[in-house]
Design a protein around this nucleic acid. Structure first.
Length: 681
DNA sequence: TAGCGGTTGGG
DNA sequence: CCAACCGCT
């Protein structure tokens, strides 16, 4: 090791140079080697999907070029083991410090803890920071010092914390590069040949990379934000922020988003602009939900795999791959659902409202295991995000204390009237219905035969009849729910009697397998019919074993006449996606972001910090808050040790994949007891 | 007109 | 579950 030693900055989902505390701290400490390690095997079942990998590739290239302009570069490593890759880099560079920013998904919590242990034991100084959240999860507690179990309380607390979220840090002006000459830079492969064609289309609609994220933020805040409240429920209004993929990869910091939005809030409040204020509050709430997803993941580290309310594990899921396939293909017979699923497949994007529609349909009408749906989202969404998606699906599935009740079925037809009143969204994504009058566009099954004929539609042939009737779904749901409660009661009784382990524990080792062979035989486009006897499975489902679904390319051949022509559904030119020209049209002076800028023009006096230390000085009065911010300590966090195991191979370093990280730790995962909650709350 | 049931939104 | 809202009595 060379004396003194430089610092390693370990980039993960913080692919930005602005407001990046780990980077800033490392730069202050001296010479820096920036590293990104691609070890997707460690993600287990949650190997990123095609579009997500495409984004990551672009974003890393963008970061690398930014780092180069500052005097260094991004060292990329391909590994199956993050810790040993890090150790290699330390050996080759003689570095003495490691800096990184916190993540809160279960795998990262465990892995990062190990990193600290292992590297510290080697005499390496390890520092980690909050860069992903307004407040660290362990800082947000209720009056009794306990974590919140509902969003409203959580968010209220966040907005009334004694200290505002940290102000964003400026990018470094220059980086002294550490000596990485003895490191081999691996070429990372994020797409295979068969994926390149599809991916090429993405670049038309999206521009990954931190400075583009910054532009997208500015564009949104100076434009659609004002009308966010009014427009947010239109399926294809281009009025959402489109920031989610940027946020997922940490290309823009939520703290910056928060502060910029708050400026608008102050401005509009002074002007008495009610609509603007409402919009800001709604938008901030969606930021809050992202925040809350990390909070939940931290406090309930299995929330991506298990329902938070224990009773749901007794729900008898309908295990029907035909349903699942029809849903994925957008052939359920409900136009709004189908349009959404086609859009998702074609573009990797869905408006938030439509996500709720399709996932709610999935869980309530089809009664498929929610984690299948979540996994499909993971594989197809451009902004796939484990914590956010887990929260979303749990909300839909009625397994959060404050989520919707399970027994309420949303009617896709009525939702169609609301979110797509003119049927434009449906027509865009379901060309086979494009000639159907608006009156019938959300319920073609009611349309007179003559109307259908004129529109060239033959139900059951070129567009399906509803895969399940809503009345039937409702009846089936009620039945299933009563069974669920019976099972739950039986299990509780068994536990109280001490006669049995309880169904819950044993059931968890009997997974509902995720459909292994998800490949679609293209001939078989006929959606599943309602089965006379639906196959039900009473166990909670396990993590889908669909890693091979990295490519679901087979699905692209929906084999529907209208889309078959061009094979894979393209991103339509008129699709609801941000276009580059629109972004560039934004007044560039409105929100300068150049590194030379030292302060944001913020009337309320929030200034950009120029370094971590500045902020220490600013807020030194509240030592408590400071400590955690730059705390080298990832807080004590103990994952469960229950028999919930998947047989992953543990490699020689004792670091396996996925849940093997979680083994051998003390149990703390709380399954919330619904009854207790209802009684106290 | 106050009050009722049904519906919807909400995280 | 709960609050807001709507149409109706």
């Amino acid at each position: 090791m060379s004396g003194g030693g430089c610092s390693i900055v370990w980039f993960r989902r913080d692919l930005r140079i602005e407001d990046n505390p780990a980077l800033t701290a490392a730069v202050r400490a001296g010479a820096v080697v920036a590293v990104f390690i691609w070890a997707p095997e460690e993600e287990g079942h949650y190997y990123p999907g095609r579009v997500s990998r495409w984004w990551l590739k672009q974003s890393l290239a963008h970061l690398d070029s930014s780092l180069r302009s500052l005097g260094t570069f991004l060292l990329t490593k391909r590994s199956t083991n993050t810790i040993s890759a890090l150790l290699d880099v330390f050996k080759a560079t003689g570095a003495s410090h490691l800096f990184f920013n916190h993540l809160y998904d279960p795998l990262s919590l465990i892995r990062d803890h190990r990193v600290k242990e292992v590297l510290s034991a080697q005499g390496i100084r390890v520092r980690s920071y909050n860069a992903d959240l307004l407040y660290e999860p362990w800082d947000v507690k209720d009056a009794n010092g306990n974590p919140f179990t509902t969003f409203a309380g959580f968010w209220e607390r966040c907005l009334s914390m004694p200290c505002d979220p940290e102000a964003p840090l400026l990018p470094p002006k220059r980086i002294v590069s550490g000596d990485a000459s003895r490191c081999l830079c691996d070429t990372l492969v994020f797409e295979d040949e068969s994926e390149k064609g599809s991916n090429a289309l993405l670049a038309r609609a999206w521009s990954p990379g931190w400075s583009n994220a910054d532009k997208a933020l500015t564009t949104f805040i100076n434009g659609p934000l004002l009308e966010y409240s009014k427009n947010r429920r239109k399926a294809d209004s281009a009025t959402t922020s489109f920031l989610s993929p940027h946020l997922h990869f940490g290309e823009v910091s939520v703290r910056k988003v928060f502060h910029l939005v708050r400026m608008k809030q102050v401005l509009w409040a002074n002007e008495g602009n009610k609509a603007g204020e409402e919009s800001v509050n709604l938008f901030l709430k969606s930021i809050g939900l992202r925040e809350y997803s990390r909070y939940m993941s931290f406090n309930h580290p299995y929330s991506h795999e298990r329902p938070l309310l224990g009773h749901l594990k007794f729900f008898p899921w309908v295990v029907d791959e035909g349903y699942f396939k029809a849903w994925r293909q957008g052939r359920t017979g409900y136009p709004l659902v189908d349009a959404g699923m086609r859009e998702l497949w074609a573009t990797g994007w869905l408006h938030d409202r439509i996500r709720v529609v399709v996932s709610s349909f999935f869980v309530k009408v089809l009664q498929l295991p929610w984690r299948w749906g979540m996994k499909y989202f993971w594989d197809t969404l451009l902004d796939a995000d484990l914590e956010s998606d887990a929260l979303g699906w749990q909300y839909i599935s009625g397994t959060l204390p404050d989520s919707r009740e399970f027994d309420r079925i949303d009617n896709p037809q009525l939702e169609g009237y609301k979110f797509d009143p003119n049927g434009e969204y449906v027509r865009r994504w379901l060309p086979e219905l494009s000639r159907l009058p608006t009156e019938w566009i959300h319920h073609p099954w009611n349309a007179p035969e003559s109307v259908l004929q004129a529109a060239g539609i033959e139900l059951g042939s070129n567009y399906p009849l509803p895969i399940v009737g809503l009345d039937a779904a409702k009846a089936r749901l009620e039945e299933a729910l009563s069974e669920m409660w019976q099972q739950e009661a039986a299990s509780r009784a068994a536990i109280e009697n001490g006669t049995e382990e309880g169904l819950g524990d044993s059931s968890e080792s009997i997974p509902i397998a995720f459909p292994q062979d998800i490949a679609m035989d293209e001939e078989d486009i006929e959606p599943a019919r309602v089965n006379a006897h639906t196959v039900r499975c009473y166990e909670d489902q396990m993590v889908p074993s669909m890693t091979s679904s990295v490519r679901l390319e087979d699905e692209s051949s929906l084999n529907i006449q209208s889309t078959a022509e061009d094979g894979r559904a393209e991103v339509p030119t008129n699709a609801n996606l941000p276009q580059e020209p629109a972004r560039d049209a934004v007044n560039p002076r409105a929100m300068p972001t150049a590194p030379t800028q030292t302060r944001l023009p913020y009337t309320a006096g929030i200034a950009l910090r120029t370094s971590v230390e500045d902020s220490t000085a600013e807020s030194s009065s509240s030592s408590d808050v400071r400590r955690e911010r730059d705390g080298g300590v990832v807080p004590v966090w103990s994952p469960p040790s229950s028999s919930y195991t998947e047989q992953f191979v543990v490699d020689e370093n004792g670091i396996g994949t996925s849940s093997s990280f979680l083994q051998g730790h003390q149990q703390t995962h709380q399954i919330i007891n619904w009854r207790r909650l209802s009684q106290t709350g």
